[in-house]
Amino acid sequence: MVQIEQDILAKNNAYADANRKEWKARGLFAANLVSSPGSGKTTLLVETIGRLAGRHPLAVIEGDQQTSNDAERIRATGAQAIQVNTGKGCHLDAHMVGHAFERLDLAQGGLLLIENVGNLVCPAEFDLGEAHKVVILSVTEGEDKPLKYPNMFAASDLMLLTKVDLLPHLDFDVAKCLDYARRVNPKIEVLQVSAKSGEGMDGWLAWLEQGVAAAKH
């Protein structure tokens, strides 16, 4: 018999700790954006980058199983972006992200936005070294997603409810959705935003700016 007593994710967690240490030394604020496919993460990022208008050094790591479409959309804004293709994998891991980061040239005190693979299951378990996970849920999805994918909502510090400009056309029950999210995570912060109409974007930018300011030293 061999006693092991080792966390299955120990290896990933060690890489995540190394990333966290590296980013802390550089005074960077890193956020890991997670959601289902099609929630509008990339659109939201493009709009966010536009509104930040070069106020902070910024870089994006894009995770998708295939293609570099998303990184190209980000680069079109003028921001630097690295695409990571996970191939058969359904999530980014801390090792891939650490390597992608090495290829970026992000100045001290900057903002690192990591767009994870669209998947509400596995990315919940993989720490990348980020300061916060931000879960994005669009109002065109079901309001019970926090109950269906509780681990992701439990692992996230902020929930962005997106595409709220569409609410008048939908039966989406916002209050119910927030109640479900708080059942799995009583501490989760929530912001309602629309990249299209601009509603709530100020609050989201303020949240990012606060993170950037806190990470600087």
Binding site: M1, V2, A154, P186
Partner: peptide, 19 residues
């Protein structure tokens, strides 16, 4: 109520091996 903080049950560990 839902004011709950998870304490146990999140383990994912390799405990031991018979070799």
């Amino acid at each position: 109520g839902y004011q709950l903080q998870v304490q146990g049950g999140t383990e994912m560990r390799v405990k031991e091996l018979e070799v």
